[in-house]
């Protein structure tokens, strides 16, 4: 553990180089919030509740969803792809550290940077400019825990996709497809409650809803109580474990390929 912790600090410092970029990312996100506000306002158009969500809850869900999107956008898939393509992965293999853990901790550093530079300003804008209200409840306390598991799931998917480039020559196509599937089918763009009933049932059993829908519900419907949140959290933990182990097994397989093809 001691050797991995400095990695968080190092990657945090690396991200700090791109200070200028944060301004544009915040601006981009504020514009997105504005667009989402107008879009959902015209969808509600005097209706109080749609699919069990009020306008305020939907806007909170979608707006926070965009903040989580930025938090989780650590480009692990692209970084792993370039490390494999340019062969720098070999230098990690000679070091006394585990490549998957190395990627996980570097990503966590980037996530902390995104949190302090982009996500918190976004949340401030949501509270003070758009005046969203949050209900108090058990969900607010479960949110940080749930978010950590969402990060683990998202990281595992990215790690998996990055490893695919051991086999495929294309990275843009794979990551673009993954990005769309993860954000649309997870509640990242529209609350899952808006999907047709039959689709919701299918989506519930896929890992993607655990990335956005679960933590977002804990904020927007914070007062729902244990009986709702506990099964959601357990399902999320199960997915995190399955995907971490799954991507680990895939890594063990993939790493053999690189030895065959040489240095």
């Amino acid at each position: 553990m001691r050797i991995y912790l400095p990695l968080i600090r190092a990657s945090y410092m690396v991200s700090l180089v791109y200070r200028f970029g944060f301004l544009f990312s915040i601006l981009g996100n504020v514009i997105y919030l504005g667009v989402a506000y107008y879009l959902w306002r015209s969808i509600y158009q005097g209706r109080d509740v749609l699919n069990g969500l009020t306008f305020n809850e939907t806007f909170l869900y979608v707006g926070l969803g965009s903040a989580i999107f930025i938090l989780l956008k650590t480009y692990a898939d692209w970084i792993i792809h370039f490390e494999i393509q340019q062969g720098t992965i070999a230098t990690y293999l000679t070091k006394p550290l585990d490549f998957q853990l190395y990627s996980l901790f570097t990503n966590f550093g980037a996530l902390l940077m995104n949190l302090s530079a982009i996500a918190i300003p976004t949340a401030i804008v949501m509270i003070f400019v758009f005046k969203v209200q949050v209900v108090y409840g058990i969900g607010l306390f479960l949110f940080p825990i749930s978010f950590m598991f969402a990060f683990l799931i998202s990281f595992s998917i990215d790690f998996f996709v990055g490893l695919i480039s051991f086999y495929s020559e294309s990275v843009w196509g794979v990551t673009a497809t993954k990005d769309i599937i993860v954000t649309v089918l997870s509640g990242g763009l529209i609350p899952l409650q808006f999907f047709p009933e039959a689709m919701q049932k299918v989506l519930y059993w896929l890992p993607f809803q655990a990335v956005y829908h679960t933590p977002l519900m804990m904020i927007t419907k914070a007062d729902l109580g244990w009986q709702t949140f506990l099964p959601m959290l357990l399902l999320q933990i199960a997915w995190a474990v399955i995907l971490l182990i799954g991507s680990r097994l895939f890594y063990n397989q993939a790493i053999k390929v690189i030895r065959i093809s040489g240095g």
Partner: peptide, 8 residues
């Protein structure tokens, strides 16, 4: 693969 990505 890129075409599939583009479609999505």
């Amino acid at each position: 693969i890129s075409s599939i990505g583009m479609l999505f």
